[in-house]
């Protein structure tokens, strides 16, 4: 039973990691005042690129790097359209998702039916074999550790570093940030590119570690969950981590309880829970006075046109 629990927790961690990576990126984007709904599309671009490069060159490291670059390329397109050309962010984000689905299917057509070895797991002799703690703390692949380190990094960046504070200022009041001399558009470009990088990395995790294969539309809606997660976490990095593990945990608990007959709740109800929580959080946020306390960037989704 202990073994089953440990294995279950490991499954939770790997189910949560793609959500965490993509949501962290989107969090930074939204904190700068930009809403990019194209996460799903950027993840797919990352997933197909990571897989294709790994298969072609045999190097997973190169695959991961190229996946991040592919996510950034998609994000750059979004940036040009919304930041430089002032296109509507919601419409452009949706278009980016649809574009990503199509493009990744086209690029990936030749890679369906190929299987690769999953990313190697960290394996420290003598430590990973310690019961319970060993596999739980030291038995994952590099991307899972990276996702946790990145959470800390993003939290530190937003809270303590000077560029992070500028980024938040841009997201809270673009006019003020502009009037004291910060280049709002440039800051937002950086944020959007980081969002693309993280979504690409999340995609690479899916196609190289989580389910090491490429099939069309393999993200199956995880980009949208990541978007919901940012709201659920009220734009705070550590809460994103918590939320991702909660979402992952509920998904796995739902599957495990079906197999083990633990409690008699319809599986559909369990699958609904994370979304119900998100809707609740959203409702609370839109209720008004809570808004500022709950952290929603004041300029979220508003285009910025510098007054000349």
């Amino acid at each position: 039973m202990n073994d089953a629990l440990v294995l279950g927790l490991i499954t939770v961690v790997s189910a949560a990691t793609p959500l965490l990576l993509a949501a962290l990126g989107e969090l930074v984007v939204e904190r700068s005042g930009v809403l990019n709904l194209g996460v799903e599309g950027m993840m797919l671009a990352g997933a197909v690129t990571g897989f294709a490069v790994t298969v072609t060159t045999g190097s997973a490291t190169l695959g991961i790097i190229c996946a991040m670059a592919a996510g950034m390329a998609m994000a750059f397109t979004f940036g040009v359209l919304t930041l430089s050309l002032m296109a509507n962010q919601v419409a452009t984000g949706l278009a980016l998702t649809i574009f990503g689905i199509g493009l990744s299917s086209l690029v990936g057509a030749g890679f369906v039916g190929i299987a690769i070895e999953p990313l190697p797991k960290l394996n420290i002799p003598g430590i990973t074999t310690i019961p319970v703690i060993g596999p739980l703390l030291f038995g994952h692949d590099i991307l899972i550790y990276a996702s946790i380190a990145l959470t800390g990094g993003v939290a530190w960046f937003l809270k303590r570093s000077r560029p992070g504070m500028i980024l938040r200022a841009v997201g809270e009041s673009d006019e003020s940030a502009h009037s004291i001399g910060y280049d709002v558009i440039r800051v937002r470009y950086m944020a959007v590119l980081f969002g693309g990088l993280m979504a690409g990395l999340a995609g690479a995790f899916l196609s190289l570690s989580y389910t090491p294969l490429w099939i069309e539309n393999m993200t199956a809606g995880r980009g949208w969950i990541a978007l919901a997660l940012v709201v659920f976490a009220t734009w705070r990095p550590w809460r994103v981590l918590f939320g991702a593990y909660l979402f992952g945990g509920v998904t796995i608990l739902q599957l495990a309880s079906q197999a083990a007959d633990w409690f008699d709740v319809p599986s559909q109800v369990m699958s609904m829970l994370p979304y119900v929580a998100t809707i609740l959080v959203l409702t609370i946020i839109s209720a008004g006075p809570w808004r500022t306390r709950l952290n929603a960037p004041a300029c979220l989704g508003k285009p910025f046109r510098p007054a000349s």
């Binding site: 279950g8 899916l206 989580y210 199956a220 796995i252 197999a259």
Partner: peptide, 13 residues
């Protein structure tokens, strides 16, 4: 694919 794979892991566990 992701959910199918999670379900499989759970069943094997």
């Amino acid at each position: 694919p992701g959910k199918e794979s999670d379900a499989t892991k759970t069943l094997i566990d």
